[in-house]
């Protein structure tokens, strides 16, 4: 595993040496994420769709002299590193927004039901991981979304909209806060199961230029 981290940081140094503007884009993204506050889940999920596929969509990636295991681990390493960045920046963003008092309603929510805030954040990070993993697995990226895949997104979206607890019983969307936690937990479990299934099904596929959505981005 040590070799993969070494390779990852070597790639990052290569990017910095040869395309320093990419680091400029990353710094801008960090600022956007830090300022996103409660909108961070939108920023993370949207950028997650593009941030990994960008690196792995060329034919040269499929021609590398790597075993299938090494090829998968290389992609997984990048997913984990991006997810870790999102995790740290996400926590920092909430601390900044709440700590500096920019979002009083979020601060009130955290005082009333810290468990709910944590649960929502955990669900958000699970969704981000699932999105990143989906983008590096060819068959999943090309698969049409099913209803089951949409449910965790729906749960997250509704709780985000209703992220102000009621005065009477501290519930957010459902009848009681316990049911809210159950719903978020169920959404999280669906996402975990989805990630595990994606990982188990993961096989290196044929290179297919027609199916590579990010090919269009490459023309920019």
């Amino acid at each position: 595993m040590k070799g993969y981290w070494k390779d990852y940081f070597r790639q990052e140094r290569t990017i910095f040496r040869n395309a320093p503007y990419m680091w400029g884009i990353r710094i801008m993204f960090v600022v956007v994420l830090l300022c996103s506050g409660r909108f961070q889940w939108c920023v993370m999920l949207t950028s997650g769709i593009f941030s990994v596929g960008f690196y792995f969509s060329s034919e040269a990636e499929y021609l590398l002299p790597l075993t299938e295991k090494e090829w998968k681990t290389r992609r997984l390493t990048r997913v984990c590193m991006i997810w870790l960045r999102y995790l740290l920046l996400g926590i920092l963003s909430y601390v900044l927004w709440v700590g500096l008092g920019y979002d009083e309603s979020l601060l009130n929510t955290f005082r009333v039901s810290p468990l709910m805030c944590v649960a929502f954040f955990v669900l958000q990070m699970l969704m981000v991981f699932g999105t990143l993993l989906e983008q590096v697995i060819d068959s999943e990226r090309r698969r049409k979304p099913s209803l089951v895949m949409v449910l965790p997104f729906a749960a997250m979206f509704y709780y985000w909209i209703h992220f102000i607890p009621s005065v009477e019983d501290n519930s957010f969307f459902a009848a009681t806060w316990q049911v809210d936690i159950l719903i978020i937990t169920a959404a999280g479990l669906i996402e975990i199961v989805r990630c595990v299934r994606m990982f188990k099904r993961w096989k290196k596929e044929d290179y297919d230029p027609a199916a590579e959505k990010v090919k269009a981005l490459q023309q920019v």
């Binding site: 390779d7 040869n18 395309a19 960008f54 040269a60 590398l64 002299p65 490459q218």
Partner: peptide, 19 residues
């Protein structure tokens, strides 16, 4: 076959490592 967003030097730097 390489990414259109990389220059020739970066391609050598990034992918040459594996060969």
């Amino acid at each position: 076959p390489f990414s259109l967003n990389m220059n020739a030097r970066e391609i050598g730097d990034r992918y040459g490592y594996y060969y």
